[in-house]
Amino acid sequence: MTERITKTRWFWAWEYEKEERWLNEMAADGWTLAEVGYCRFTFERSEPNAYTIRLEMHPHDEQYLSFMEDTGAEYIGRCLQWVYFRRRSELGAFDLFSDLDSKLTHLRKIHKTILIVGILNLFAGMLNLFVGLESTSVYRMNNACVAVLNLLVCTFLMYGLGRLKEKIDSLERERLLRE
């Protein structure tokens, strides 16, 4: 049986490039991503640099998976909105996006998703805060605690949105001059 290891790591959605870099460093060391779960990555022993790993935010789409497989890519798995692919390096360079437009579309998709999650958290946070402060229920402290959590997550997401916006803006400036 192939030797396997599992690692636990947390990456924020706006750090997907960092995540991809890490996965490819693992592949370079002879550990190829084989399974993904919530913050869990399972690797299997392979030749160093045998595969290139790519990930992308893409809704569930069977057609896309079979399209990718036709191009020689292997579907590893998905975690929430993220899909993971790998392709044997001997087949050549493996990228998911080859022009600025499709890179921008992808970044905007991530931005929009985080924005929605952020707004939902803000809304839940306000509601919990209100209940925590105003209600006479014995559980109101629970609401107050969750409210703090909600608002904390919101702050992180705001930071992420800022980082993504920077990337989008710089690609858009470049797009004014080239494709």
């Binding site: 992308e56 893409h58 896309y64 399209f67 990718m68 036709d70 191009t71 020689g72 890519a73 360079a93 990228d95 998911l96 996006f97 080859s98 022009d99 437009d101 499709s102 579309t105 992808h106």
Partner: peptide
């Protein structure tokens, strides 16, 4: 899909390589 990628690469003498995600979109 894959046929398009190959044909485009051939037409442009290897210069234009369409990535699968870009092509799908």
């Amino acid at each position: 899909g894959y046929g398009i990628m190959q044909q485009v690469e051939e037409l442009s003498s290897g210069r234009v390589r369409l990535a699968a995600g870009t092509l799908y979109g």
